[in-house]
Amino acid sequence: MPRQYSKGARTAAAFLEAARKEFATRGYLSTKVEDIARTAGRSPASFYNYFTDKADVLAALAQAFHEDTRAQIAAPYQKGRPPEEAIRTAITIFWETYRDRLGALSGVFQASMADPTFLASWREIRQSAIDFIAQGVERAQKDGYCPGIDVRMTSSALSSMLELSCYVWLVQGGDNGDSHVDEHAAIDSLASIWYHAIYWRPQEHD
């Protein structure tokens, strides 16, 4: 049976979808609330019944991205796949979802540098992702891998690597600005770095 939404929920969803489209077309910094409302077919006054400002709607889009990817990324680990395989599958899911929501997610970096209110919201969202990564690092340590590393710092560094790499390669077109990024090579590189950052043991001494 199809899910039923209230009128209020449908209106909020319309604003979110409109914001996603406007951020993709205009860029976050150039988009105005009036643009979002017009694309949603609603009034600007109605927008403020659901969101405080465009940073608030961007935070909602970013939150939805992290909730969706976290649910999907957990699957290969829950199925007990070998760590190297699970990591590559998880990074592939993140990459493809980021690519499919590029308009909104490209605005995250712009907004975090220009809007202190959004930055605070973004830090809260990131904490959930870092917590999830930290659980994986802790599991690896229990199995004898990466002894002594700082779990939180390592998790933050890996999260930052993945997010910024997606931004540089997918939004900015790579380091040359006009290059085509080989997605398979990019995912392979990220997965290799991630795996080797965690799944190592101290060398045994003779």
Score class of each variant (00 low, 15 high):
residue 154 T to M: 13
residue 84 E to A: 12
residue 108 V to P: 01
residue 51 F to G: 00
residue 78 Q to D: 10
residue 86 A to G: 02
residue 104 A to I: 05
residue 103 G to H: 09
residue 120 A to Q: 13
residue 64 A to Q: 13
residue 153 M to W: 08
residue 201 R to T: 12
residue 25 T to G: 03
residue 185 A to T: 11
residue 202 P to I: 07
residue 170 L to A: 05
residue 115 D to R: 09
residue 67 E to V: 05
residue 165 S to D: 10
residue 91 I to F: 08
residue 191 A to Q: 01
residue 19 A to M: 09
residue 5 Y to K: 04
residue 182 D to V: 06
residue 119 L to Q: 08
residue 30 S to G: 14
residue 57 V to D: 03
residue 127 Q to H: 15
residue 168 V to R: 15
residue 59 A to I: 01
residue 197 A to D: 03
residue 191 A to H: 03
residue 90 A to I: 08
residue 24 A to W: 12
residue 176 N to K: 07
residue 186 A to K: 02
residue 183 E to V: 07
residue 188 D to Y: 10
residue 107 G to H: 03
residue 176 N to R: 10
residue 119 L to T: 13
residue 183 E to M: 04
residue 194 W to M: 06
residue 133 I to M: 12
residue 16 L to I: 15
residue 67 E to M: 06
residue 39 T to F: 08
residue 160 S to N: 11
residue 146 C to Q: 04
residue 120 A to G: 07
residue 15 F to I: 04
residue 129 A to R: 09
residue 159 S to R: 09
residue 68 D to I: 02
residue 95 W to I: 07
residue 11 T to W: 11
residue 78 Q to C: 00
residue 33 V to M: 13
residue 122 W to C: 01
residue 39 T to W: 05
residue 39 T to M: 07
residue 67 E to C: 05
residue 165 S to A: 13
residue 80 G to R: 05
residue 176 N to A: 14
residue 178 D to E: 09
residue 60 A to C: 00
residue 153 M to D: 11
residue 8 G to S: 08
residue 74 A to E: 14
residue 40 A to Q: 07
residue 152 R to M: 10
residue 187 I to F: 12
residue 105 L to C: 06
residue 50 Y to S: 01
residue 66 H to W: 07
residue 102 L to H: 02
residue 30 S to V: 02
residue 171 V to C: 11
residue 96 E to S: 09
residue 68 D to H: 13
residue 49 N to M: 13
residue 4 Q to H: 06
residue 159 S to Q: 12
residue 175 D to M: 14
residue 136 G to V: 01
residue 105 L to G: 06
residue 149 I to V: 14
residue 138 E to F: 06
residue 28 Y to K: 02
residue 152 R to F: 10
residue 203 Q to H: 07
residue 42 R to F: 15
residue 168 V to Q: 15
residue 196 H to V: 00
residue 137 V to K: 01
residue 165 S to T: 13
residue 40 A to I: 08
residue 21 K to E: 14
residue 5 Y to P: 00
residue 87 I to S: 07
residue 46 S to D: 05
residue 54 K to Q: 03
residue 122 W to Y: 13
residue 205 H to Q: 14
residue 44 P to L: 12
residue 201 R to I: 08
residue 12 A to D: 03
residue 65 F to S: 00
residue 113 M to N: 06
residue 206 D to A: 15
residue 181 V to L: 11
residue 40 A to T: 10
residue 54 K to G: 04
residue 152 R to D: 10
residue 37 A to G: 01
residue 4 Q to Y: 08
residue 14 A to Q: 09
residue 35 D to G: 01
residue 114 A to P: 02
residue 141 Q to I: 02
residue 182 D to G: 03
residue 101 R to Q: 09
residue 172 Q to R: 15
residue 145 Y to S: 00
residue 200 W to H: 04
residue 31 T to A: 14
residue 144 G to L: 12
residue 34 E to F: 05
residue 70 R to G: 04
residue 186 A to D: 05
residue 191 A to M: 06
residue 136 G to S: 05
residue 32 K to E: 15
residue 177 G to E: 07
residue 163 E to C: 01
residue 69 T to F: 12
residue 90 A to T: 07
residue 114 A to L: 14
residue 3 R to A: 06
residue 88 R to S: 04
residue 12 A to K: 15
residue 120 A to Y: 11
residue 202 P to H: 07
residue 149 I to D: 03
residue 21 K to F: 11
residue 74 A to S: 11
residue 134 A to R: 04
residue 77 Y to P: 00
residue 92 T to P: 00
